[in-house]
Computed example of a mutant assay.
Amino acid sequence: MSTLTSYRVTWQQQGNEKSQTGIRVVDSDEMTRPCDPEQLRALLRKMIANRFQPISNIAPDSIVLLDVVPVCNCEPYPGANCLWDAYKGERFYLVASARHGYETVCDRHGDDVLGIVRNSLSVEFLTMVREKYSHQ
């Protein structure tokens, strides 16, 4: 399943003191190792080079990334509450359940219970919830 993630990227071209900042959207299908920060940085350099360098002189290695920050979907709307940021990236969490051998996956926003699952499946379930409903 393809995941689109936005990044605020500050970069400059080698030999140029002036930096630029912009939003770049990365499709996880373009990466063979989606969790690899080096592959992400290489893809961002390539995207920037394709966009800002002449076709005859595209050189991703000449792009220096100064800062790469994930951006949530709610950020473009002024005054919107970013629930990911409000809970420091820990919006969803696990707690022990009243039922022996089970854990509860909770949402700090509203203290909602999202599911009660066996201990052996709780981490996978929490990961699925974070991927689907967390900061994107």
Rank of each mutant, 00 (worst) to 15 (best):
3 T>I: 11
3 T>W: 15
4 L>V: 12
15 G>H: 07
19 S>Y: 06
20 Q>N: 15
22 G>N: 03
24 R>W: 01
26 V>S: 01
27 D>C: 11
28 S>H: 04
28 S>K: 08
29 D>V: 11
31 M>F: 06
33 R>S: 12
33 R>K: 08
34 P>E: 03
34 P>L: 01
35 C>Y: 12
38 E>I: 09
44 L>I: 03
45 R>V: 05
45 R>N: 04
47 M>R: 05
47 M>D: 01
48 I>K: 03
49 A>M: 09
49 A>R: 08
50 N>I: 08
53 Q>S: 02
56 S>P: 01
57 N>V: 05
60 P>L: 10
60 P>V: 08
65 L>R: 01
67 D>W: 06
67 D>V: 04
68 V>T: 09
70 P>T: 15
72 C>Q: 00
73 N>M: 08
74 C>I: 13
75 E>M: 06
75 E>R: 05
77 Y>P: 03
87 Y>G: 15
88 K>G: 15
90 E>C: 03
93 Y>W: 11
93 Y>L: 04
95 V>Q: 07
95 V>M: 10
96 A>Q: 13
96 A>L: 07
102 Y>L: 04
103 E>L: 04
103 E>H: 14
104 T>V: 10
105 V>R: 01
105 V>E: 00
107 D>K: 04
108 R>V: 02
108 R>Y: 12
109 H>K: 12
110 G>R: 06
113 V>H: 09
114 L>A: 01
120 S>P: 05
122 S>G: 02
122 S>D: 02
124 E>Q: 03
126 L>N: 11
126 L>T: 12
128 M>H: 07
128 M>Q: 12
129 V>F: 02
134 S>N: 14
135 H>W: 05
135 H>L: 07
